[in-house]
Computed example of a mutant assay.
Amino acid sequence: MKLRSSTRTLALSTALAATLALAACGASNEDDSSSSGSDSSGSSDAPADLSGDLAGAGSSAQQAAMEAWQAGFQGEYPDVNFSYDPAGSGAGREQFIAGTTAFAGSDAALKDDELTAATERCGGGEVFELPNYISPIAVIFNLDGVDELNLTPATIAGIFTGAITTWDDPAIAEDNPDATLPSTAITPVHRGDDSGTTQNFTDYLNQTAGDVWTSEPDGEWPLPGGEAANGTSGVVEVVTSTAGAVTYADASRAGDLGVASIGVGEEFVAPSAEAAAAVVENSPAVEGRGEFDFAIEVNRTTEDASEYPLVLVSYHIGCVTYDDQETADNVKAFMEYVISEDGQAAAAENAGNAPISDTIRDEGQSAVDAISAG
């Protein structure tokens, strides 16, 4: 499988306020920008005046980034009635396939059967999957007196299978020889909804700790026990209010909770946007997909300590050809803003994720250019 280019730009630049100011400026000069070539703010090929509805649904991990994208997009196109329901990745894919939304946000690429259904929803035409949001998944914990932890993949798997039940367990102590660990009971918290974050987390455990975690990757939590909550905010709220609790969630939502460093090779690596982007950039594309489907097979088993393999790549999924011109124009303009340098900088500022690389942007632009009405 061919690896993506290792050349990347990882700077987290351009404040959200500046981006929105640029968007507003773009809106006041739409007559000029509509006739120009592609620029960093996107929407260059879309009509100067857009209106109607644009509805999406899906990933709750994307929510903070989506707020920034919505603000920037509607700064340029205020007459578009934009809505996004952060109902979870599985629900987002279901709503898109059912035709109730124009696009989905998903922390996991379409499964083969979903891809078949999505192709049918798109009238038999091409489906696009654009990796527009890259962020580390953090192992987040609430443990009085402990701010930092190192956890190997096998230890994480033991915690979430229920084999490790207290924070002073020998396996955790071995990972943290200099820490004073309390005997507090561990409360593992998982997503109760069909979640792309769960899909990524269980895929990571399956690949890196297969002797302990024997379940197949799945967006629905596969084991009994533990506490369940819906959405990223739901699991974070449970951990915040429960001493000894631990969960997995988009790192940007950790707040003041503890965040573990995970074992990568012989080192322990903390989640960061840079390390998440690095592992994605050096991961192969999923084979056998369509021309505008850029799903990525994340290399979970890397031993490079500059990479953080517990990462989610969140996609925007839609049709290359829509039934009506209004929907096609709105989707095209929104996706072009999202992949633009301004759109990615706004998301990074608001959500703390990693901007996509130039390689991924160029791939995405080929799909955006192809969006039209049939």
Rank of each mutant, 00 (worst) to 15 (best):
residue 2 K to G: 07
residue 3 L to P: 14
residue 6 S to T: 13
residue 7 T to S: 14
residue 8 R to N: 09
residue 8 R to M: 10
residue 8 R to K: 12
residue 15 A to W: 13
residue 18 A to N: 15
residue 20 L to N: 14
residue 20 L to I: 11
residue 21 A to D: 11
residue 23 A to D: 09
residue 24 A to G: 15
residue 26 G to K: 11
residue 26 G to I: 10
residue 27 A to W: 04
residue 32 D to Y: 13
residue 34 S to P: 02
residue 43 S to Q: 07
residue 53 D to G: 08
residue 53 D to N: 11
residue 59 S to Q: 07
residue 62 Q to A: 12
residue 64 A to M: 13
residue 66 M to F: 14
residue 66 M to D: 12
residue 68 A to R: 06
residue 75 G to L: 02
residue 78 P to M: 07
residue 83 S to P: 03
residue 83 S to W: 02
residue 84 Y to H: 05
residue 88 G to L: 05
residue 90 G to V: 05
residue 90 G to M: 10
residue 92 G to I: 05
residue 92 G to Q: 10
residue 94 E to A: 09
residue 94 E to W: 07
residue 96 F to N: 03
residue 98 A to Q: 13
residue 98 A to P: 14
residue 102 A to N: 04
residue 105 G to S: 13
residue 112 D to W: 11
residue 113 D to E: 09
residue 117 A to D: 12
residue 121 R to Q: 06
residue 131 P to W: 07
residue 132 N to T: 15
residue 134 I to N: 08
residue 138 A to Q: 10
residue 140 I to Y: 12
residue 144 D to C: 09
residue 147 D to V: 05
residue 148 E to A: 06
residue 149 L to I: 01
residue 151 L to N: 03
residue 152 T to P: 11
residue 156 I to K: 03
residue 158 G to Y: 06
residue 159 I to F: 03
residue 161 T to R: 09
residue 165 T to W: 01
residue 168 D to Y: 06
residue 174 E to W: 04
residue 177 P to D: 02
residue 178 D to M: 04
residue 179 A to S: 14
residue 181 L to I: 03
residue 184 T to N: 13
residue 184 T to W: 07
residue 192 G to A: 04
residue 193 D to S: 07
residue 196 G to S: 02
residue 198 T to L: 11
residue 200 N to T: 15
residue 202 T to S: 09
residue 203 D to E: 05
residue 206 N to S: 12
residue 215 S to G: 08
residue 216 E to K: 15
residue 222 P to S: 00
residue 225 G to L: 02
residue 226 G to A: 00
residue 228 A to G: 01
residue 228 A to P: 01
residue 229 A to V: 00
residue 231 G to M: 04
residue 235 V to A: 08
residue 239 V to G: 06
residue 239 V to I: 05
residue 240 T to N: 08
residue 241 S to V: 07
residue 242 T to E: 00
residue 243 A to P: 08
residue 244 G to E: 05
residue 246 V to F: 00
residue 246 V to P: 03
residue 251 A to Q: 11
residue 252 S to F: 13
residue 253 R to K: 15
residue 261 S to V: 02
residue 265 G to L: 10
residue 266 E to D: 12
residue 266 E to P: 07
residue 267 E to M: 03
residue 267 E to H: 08
residue 268 F to W: 08
residue 268 F to V: 01
residue 269 V to E: 02
residue 270 A to W: 05
residue 271 P to F: 10
residue 274 E to S: 02
residue 278 A to S: 06
residue 280 V to R: 02
residue 283 S to G: 05
residue 285 A to G: 11
residue 292 F to E: 04
residue 294 F to Y: 07
residue 297 E to A: 06
residue 301 T to E: 04
residue 302 T to Y: 14
residue 309 P to K: 01
residue 311 V to C: 10
residue 314 S to C: 10
residue 315 Y to L: 15
residue 315 Y to C: 09
residue 315 Y to K: 00
residue 320 V to I: 06
residue 325 Q to S: 01
residue 327 T to S: 09
residue 332 K to F: 00
residue 334 F to C: 01
residue 344 Q to R: 00
residue 345 A to H: 08
residue 345 A to D: 15
residue 349 E to R: 08
residue 351 A to M: 10
residue 354 A to Q: 14
residue 355 P to Y: 09
residue 365 Q to A: 06
residue 365 Q to R: 13
residue 368 V to A: 01
residue 370 A to I: 09
residue 370 A to G: 13
residue 370 A to C: 13
residue 373 A to C: 12
residue 373 A to K: 05
